[in-house]
């Protein structure tokens, strides 16, 4: 009873590693040889019904549901059989598993908002190898893992529009501004903040950024960070939060402190989240791209890619939606929208 079988098992593990290593030398291939996908040979699906999988970062989020509504509204007219499904958490591996299923099931186009730029790459490349068209929307992967990226807004577009909202409100008056970002290491946030600084330097010398605080992705942290801004920087008259967690938190804090009308709050967030603060007057205007249009444009790109008519650079004309710039595989939705009360009531995402 005193010896345990671990020596034997260690030997077995070593043998296993050897088997794998040996197998790696010869018999292993990168894809199954029996290819069951019939789409591979066909280059154009023109005039045929195509199956498109629209995969968000996660389901059950108003932002992505808005994109789905947009996509559904044009799918029938484009002769697209649309499936909208994604993981329940922001999981890249769940997305990979779904992509693999959709490829196996014979979908023509996969349109995904990637939870990670690199983790999805092998699955997407394998999909393209089998003749499935791959586009990304909202959040890109590495460029060689997809054919097109439907880019909802450029860094400059977001930065300049956010600053414009504040500048239009204060009309040339000297104004101290605070920024409420999500985390210090968030790439998107930092790029937008840089773009805001650049716009201020170029066009609005009357605006001065006094401090940048962080909500760490938590509403409660955002509320206390805003309180710190108000108490620590009493000259600040405007708060910009380019973060959909930070903006409602800033509005909540300003409301709590009874400073409505004294501190101008704006930023990036969804209409459904902002409705409450717009209705009670804490927030007048805020910025977001039109998510419905993002869904519609993604479907149009899906159709054009399947038809083989999508230009990699130039102008992409969509009937009823407008003309869109395409730069090296990136389709631009255009400048973000400024939402006021009327727009907030109208949109449901």
């Amino acid at each position: 009873m005193k010896t345990i079988g671990w020596k034997r098992m260690a030997t077995a593990l070593v043998i296993l590693l050897l088997i794998v290593a040996l197998a790696g030398c010869g018999a292993v291939q990168s894809s199954p040889s029996a290819n069951s996908n019939q789409n591979a040979a066909q280059t154009s699906q023109k005039g045929k019904t195509i199956k498109v999988a629209l995969i968000p970062k996660a389901i059950g989020i108003p932002y992505f549901t808005g994109a789905e509504q947009g996509a559904q509204s044009v799918a029938a007219a484009l002769n697209i059989k649309l499936t909208y499904n994604g993981p329940t958490t922001l999981s890249a591996s769940d997305q990979v598993s779904m992509i693999n299923s959709y490829v196996a099931e014979g979908y023509n186009v996969i349109a995904v908002s990637a939870n990670d730029p690199t983790s999805l790459a092998p699955a997407l490349k394998a999909a393209m190898k089998k003749g499935v068209k791959v586009i990304t929307w909202d959040s890109d992967t590495v460029p060689d893992a997809r054919q097109f990226f439907v880019n909802q807004a450029t860094v400059d577009g977001i930065g300049s529009t956010l600053v414009k909202v504040v500048a239009d409100h204060f009309k040339g008056k000297q104004t101290d501004v605070a920024i409420l970002s999500s985390t210090p290491s968030n790439t998107n946030q930092n790029q937008w903040i840089d773009a805001m600084k650049k716009t201020i330097a170029d066009k609005y010398p009357n605006l001065h950024i006094k401090t940048i605080q962080y909500d760490q992705g938590q509403p409660s942290t955002g509320v206390s960070a805003t309180e710190n801004i108000v108490k620590g920087f009493p000259t600040v008259k405007a708060i910009i939060s380019p973060d959909s967690v930070g903006l409602p938190a800033a509005a909540e804090a300003v409301e709590k402190l009874g400073l409505q009308g004294k501190i101008y709050v704006t930023g990036l967030a969804d209409p459904v989240v902002m409705k409450k603060y717009v209705d009670d007057g804490t927030v007048q205007k805020y910025v977001l791209w039109n998510v419905l249009d993002l869904g519609k444009l993604t479907m149009n790109v899906a159709r054009a890619v399947a038809d083989g008519t999508m230009p990699t650079s130039g102008t992409f004309k969509v009937k009823g939606l407008g003309d869109f710039q395409v730069n090296n595989g990136q389709v631009l939705l255009g400048l973000p929208m400024i939402f006021d009360k009327a727009a907030t009531d109208k949109y449901n995402f």
Partner: peptide, 17 residues
């Protein structure tokens, strides 16, 4: 690429490693 076969390769063309 050879390392990627551990997770994505197929032995004899049909058995996933």
């Amino acid at each position: 690429g050879s390392f990627l076969l551990l997770g994505t390769g197929f032995l004899y063309g049909y058995l996933p490693v």
